[in-house]
Simulated assay, not measured.
Amino acid sequence: MQRKTLLDSECPIALSLERVGEWWSLLIMRDALQGLSRFDDFSRSLDISPNMLTRRLNALVDAGLLERRAYSVKPLRHEYVPTERGRDLKGVLFALIAWGNRHFSQDEVSVQVVDRATGRTLQPMMVDVVESRVVPWDECELVHGPGASQGMRERLGRMKKVQD
């Protein structure tokens, strides 16, 4: 059975999942954002089969999240370095860490996101960049953007009516 593609979707979540929705992809990006860059390092960290790792690395390069760079000519070896697009995924991973800690930690958390200067635990949030203020999640809503199709405008309109 062939997997459906989400590349034609206008939903940003669907478009993002098309690139990183496979769980190995997020784990590879986690490791790359923590400084791993070589095939053998990813393989050891993740205990992933070489074929799967090759497929996932190629997909992440094709999606523009990692850049492949040769670090050895004989034999030819590559390292994988996050691109700007890949580095921007850090916020998503930090949000997943906070969500996982809140809802799935067995006892005490094993990993947390902290402020380097203070060591205090941080939580994901939305910020109004014009006014530099935190906007609580329950005060946020989804609205159509300027590029939304009529179908998306109607869908978001229906969702808003259900919420009201």
Rank of each mutant, 00 (worst) to 15 (best):
E84H: 10
K74H: 11
A63E: 11
P124K: 06
H103D: 09
K161M: 13
I13E: 11
Q34T: 09
M126G: 05
L33C: 04
V20G: 03
P124Q: 10
R68I: 00
G147A: 15
V134S: 09
V109I: 10
F39M: 03
R158I: 00
V130S: 14
K161F: 06
S37Y: 01
V92D: 03
P136H: 01
R120E: 15
G21D: 08
S25K: 14
L53E: 08
W99M: 04
K161Q: 15
V129K: 15
S45N: 13
W99A: 06
M126S: 12
F94G: 01
E10G: 08
L142K: 07
E67T: 10
F104V: 05
R38Y: 07
R153D: 03
E67D: 13
V113F: 07
S25V: 02
M159I: 12
Q112C: 05
A148W: 09
G145T: 10
C140P: 02
L142S: 03
R19S: 12
L65K: 04
R153F: 01
P82L: 08
V111F: 13
D62C: 01
W24T: 04
G91S: 10
G151T: 12
G21M: 08
E84R: 13
L53H: 07
V20L: 15
V134T: 11
G147Y: 13
R56N: 05
M152C: 10
L66S: 04
L142W: 11
E84C: 02
V162A: 14
D107A: 13
Y80T: 05
R3Y: 11
I13R: 12
S43M: 13
G145C: 03
Q123F: 07
R87P: 00
E22Q: 15
W137R: 07
D164A: 10
W24G: 00
S105P: 03
D41L: 06
D115I: 02
R102K: 11
L76P: 06
Q2R: 12
V143L: 09
Y80D: 04
G147I: 03
F42Y: 15
K90T: 09
S37M: 09
Q106S: 08
A70N: 07
L156N: 09
R68W: 02
D115H: 09
A98G: 01
S110M: 09
K160L: 12
E141G: 05
G145M: 06
G35E: 08
V81Y: 02
L60Y: 07
V61Q: 10
H78L: 05
L60M: 13
L53G: 00
V81Q: 01
D8E: 12
C11E: 14
I13Q: 07
D115A: 12
E79R: 09
H78K: 01
L76H: 07
T121E: 13
D107P: 01
Y71D: 15
V162R: 14
V92T: 13
L15H: 00
L93T: 00
Q112G: 04
T54R: 12
R87N: 08
S25M: 08
G119D: 11
M159R: 12
M29F: 02
Q112H: 02
A32C: 08
K160H: 13
K74E: 12
A59H: 14
P82I: 02
P50I: 02
S45C: 10
E10A: 06
P146I: 05
I13T: 12
R116E: 14
G100Y: 00
R120G: 01
T54L: 09
N101A: 04
